[in-house]
Design a protein around this nucleic acid. Structure first.
Lengths: 414, 414
DNA sequence: TTGACTTAATCCATCCATTGGATTTAGCTG
DNA sequence: CAGCTAAATCCAATGGATGGATTAAGTCAA
């Protein structure tokens, strides 16, 4: 979409509807007059738009605000049961499936264990059947189920709906996930990389706290970033914006699969940090902490290492902190390049070591006195937590349907 | 603007007008039917919009396309004399002023020499008077002169129209340039940092070659980047997106004013590269190349060094190449983070050494086989050349008035 | 209790850019 | 010159936003 398209009246209608819904969602209980002030629309227009949203079952009237001298304002709130979406977070070792409502609340969820050499077709098949069962179990109105969102490790090809040889999913080369899941479930399918999906989830659920612009740093099996600028998600020319693993950092002796030794990626995965512990502090420390170093026990090793770091074990903390510094270094570059006032951290690999990351990133990003004085950058944790990947995946669908944006005015989508 | 605003019919009209004008500008001679296809608007709508643009004097009918069996298409082209803008590029040692037409062609230009300790008020005064004289001399219709654009070294405060203590303009702390120039010239004034202005100029003038997304690396007194995503300029939360000097690179012994030793900025200014030459290769090489090392002769030293590097002097080329590698390293990170398919180089400090920069950046950015296979990044020079700063400044005004974008549908601006 | 006042929300006629279908304009071809 | 094709325009209709008037529902003071 190299060219900008024109727009027309019906699209304006749809767009304004989305704007009003978005305002209601982010502000919670809010009256029509406030919405008019927030959106710049007329009271009359807001009234009309709200009526449509009420008819569509997406919002409800919930009580009244205390009077300020005249008629009380009737407050509007989103209707959680107005719409539903399914989210799937694909990871090398597991698939997390959630069914969420319009408010982003999880109705039912399920985790499937996967084993590394699984064939894509089998995984899609297993996951799809689990999705179907979840839908039946939840008993949601099928008409209100908008679709299925998938968060996969990048890179992906946005135009064809494929994952493109993800380093963390060996053997998955150009797998057309969108097509496969659409056929298997009969639902509309959206695909994005895990970090971007997480950022969209954060934007969708975070309300005021995630309005405007922010950079989401996602720490899962690998590291990635999701970029939200002016309430709009940056996808990039090929659908891979936020690729964080190739950000330059202080070079060491780890070689990225691209051949460089100064890429962030190879230094900050759980596997790399565990390896770092073994190399720096040897088997004694590893034993003490509970790290075996076997490839098969990566998950448990990482858990043990995180726990030790959190508990103050100096060796564990040291290796975590070294990785954190590199992440912080890259984050500093990204934040100043994008000029975002907020950085959000999330991802399941982060559990327990958030304070270390927050501290290092804060000190790197807010180091310059200039930055501090003009606009200190806020560093925060995800408002969603561990399941940000799966919930983010579901949010892809909600966001695609209801978040106001360019595409509503230019493309046909609504 | 943390919230998304609604829109309405008149705005849609203005926006579509801008879309059509933009399409005519970027495509050159184009017919109404083609415009309809390009913009997604109806033939009828395009007809109406074009009539308005004709009445406004912004486009003209220029001949016909050969018939393809029916009535010939009448071709539309932008009218260069439809609008004018003045651009001022402020630099520590000079101010370049240009008056350009709608096509971005320079009508008249002038360069004022400045001396370092100049007081802001005096500079504004001198420049403003020069602008006035230029306007008179050019004899353009004042009604068609849209305003004055200023490109200044960052950082700036976008909301108040100030420059905020730019490292390259000592003593200029929170100078309200917009206000001062508006008062002195009576023109509407737009301010942006030099790199962003250059990117906007590139976008405005570059036509198809600069449609979509690109990262503009600007090398002047300092280094900066301008970011264009989906034909839209990224300004950032505080108006300082593209701050490139704090991108992390391989650390050395140069300390950034923010305290870090791994910031790109201090390693790649002309002054730093000259210093590097002296430190690495001593007075003999400096003499041979024609570099004195005196602060006062920075301009000439840099010229000599560039010429020597271009001519193949190994020492000169080495120091330039070292800086180029660091720039390339940072560019690799930025390009992968933003997922842009194009990187553009420009700025007056670049003259003569473009090939070295292009080569180093290309090899760094396109190193990964993955990146190469999915989407090799195109690395190019500015289509404008040396004066990209000043022309970019003027483009701020043209862009602000006529480039289609969000703001037309949400804010009041047109 | 009542009447004056205030604010929220809606009703209604109007506006206006886009749309789709019909029409005109202007070329080509046999 | 008639028949065909494509470009561009005319015209009535559509539909979402608008502004002013109206109704609904509260507060406050006498």
């Amino acid at each position: 979409m190299t060219r900008l398209g024109g727009t027309n009246l019906p699209r304006v209608g749809g767009y304004n509807q989305a704007v009003v819904l978005d305002a209601i969602r982010t502000r919670g209980a809010v009256s029509r007059v406030e919405l008019a002030a927030l959106t710049g629309l007329t009271n009359q227009t807001v009234s009309n738009v709200v009526r449509k949203l009420l008819d569509a079952g997406l919002v409800t009237e919930t009580g009244h605000a205390p009077s300020s001298g005249g008629k009380r304002r009737t407050l509007l709130s989103p209707r959680p049961d107005g719409a539903y979406a399914v989210g799937v977070h694909l990871d090398p070792d597991s698939a997390v499936i959630v069914l969420v409502n319009l408010a982003g609340e999880v109705i039912v969820s399920r985790r499937l264990r996967l084993t590394a050499p699984d064939v894509p077709a089998d995984v899609v098949d297993r996951v799809s059947r689990a999705v179907q069962r979840l839908i039946v179990r939840s008993a949601v109105d099928p008409a209100r189920l908008l679709g299925l969102g998938i968060a996969a490790p990048g890179p992906i090809d946005g135009s064809s709906g494929c994952v493109v040889r993800p380093p963390n999913l060996p053997g998955w080369d150009r797998v057309p996930l969108v097509e496969m899941f659409a056929k298997a479930t009969g639902l509309p399918v959206a695909l994005d990389n895990d970090a971007t999906a997480a950022a969209i989830g954060e934007r969708w659920i975070g309300g005021e706290a995630r309005a405007g612009s922010f950079l989401f740093i996602y720490l899962g099996t690998g590291i990635g970033a999701g970029i939200v600028l002016n309430n709009t998600v940056l996808h990039g020319d090929s659908g891979n914006a936020g690729e964080f693993g190739h950000m330059p950092v202080e070079p060491g002796d780890r070689v990225c699969h691209c051949g460089a030794t100064d890429c962030l990626g190879p230094y900050c995965s759980p596997a790399a940090i565990i390896d770092d512990l073994l190399r720096r502090y040897g088997p004694v420390a590893a034993d003490r902490i509970g790290v075996t170093g076997a490839a098969a026990s990566l998950h448990d090793d990482w858990k043990a290492l995180r726990r030790a770091a959190r508990a103050g074990d100096p060796d564990a903390e040291d290796v975590v902190r070294r990785a954190a510094r590199l992440i912080a270094q890259a984050t500093r570059g990204a934040a100043s390049l994008l000029d975002v006032g907020r950085v959000v951290l999330g991802g399941e690999a982060l559990r327990g070591i958030e304070p270390i990351l927050l501290e290092e990133i804060d000190s790197a990003v807010n180091r310059t006195s200039v930055a501090r004085s003009i606009r200190p950058v806020v560093i925060e944790q995800s408002v969603i937590g561990d399941t940000v990947g799966a919930i983010g995946a579901a949010s892809l669908v909600l966001h695609g349907n209801y978040a106001p944006g360019w595409r509503m005015l230019t493309d046909g989508a609504g």
